[in-house]
């Protein structure tokens, strides 16, 4: 088993303390709110998607360190990327966090590999994936997403991890 002590690494603690792109965007082109009903955590994601690229992205909400750091690092990772590139990254992140792919098998994952350890903690997987889930919801004009929504294509049951 991976030593998940490594989950609370400096980089995650730093993003939790000083989240990047925290707040809202005035007139976002895409927006969604994600809920984790298991713990009551929620975050909102605003995206300003131009013709080519993500011009701006912001998030805010109430959540644990894993969720907040994941959201913060997500915004820095996808800002300036095309929607297609961001969607590829979403798929890679979800596959890594749920233990379906190792981080070595995710070519675009980069620094987000610090979240690989979460796959050993089934009860915390949802904390890490909530922001990605919500970004996907924003892209697909699903205004409210939930880690527990069965009909949601992003649904990742705890047992999957």
């Amino acid at each position: 088993m991976t030593n998940y002590k490594s989950l609370y690494q400096e980089v995650i603690l730093d993003h939790n303390k000083k989240p990047r792109n925290y707040g809202a965007i005035d007139h976002p082109s895409h927006h969604a709110v994600g809920h984790n009903p298991l713990c009551g955590d929620h975050i909102s994601v605003d995206v300003d998607l131009g013709d080519e690229r993500i011009n701006n992205i912001a998030f805010q909400g109430e959540s644990c360190a894993i969720c907040k750091a994941s959201a913060s690092m997500m915004t820095t990772a996808v800002k300036g990327k095309t929607r297609a590139e961001a969607e590829t990254l979403i798929q890679e992140f979800l596959a890594m966090a749920t233990g379906k792919l190792s981080h070595d098998a995710c070519p675009n994952i980069g620094r987000l590999a610090v979240f690989a350890g979460v796959s050993d903690l089934p009860t915390r997987v949802k904390c890490a994936i909530l922001p990605w889930h919500t970004l996907s919801g924003a892209f697909n004009a699903v205004e409210t997403t939930s880690t527990e929504a069965e009909e949601d294509p992003m649904h990742a049951p705890i047992g999957d991890a």
Partner: peptide, 22 residues
């Protein structure tokens, strides 16, 4: 400054079982 879920995971690392949530 620490969310209950982070407390729960870190205490578990010390072998301590507490409940976190609502």
């Amino acid at each position: 400054g620490v969310h209950p879920h982070d407390i729960g995971t870190l205490l578990n690392q010390e072998g301590i079982a507490v409940r976190t949530g609502h």
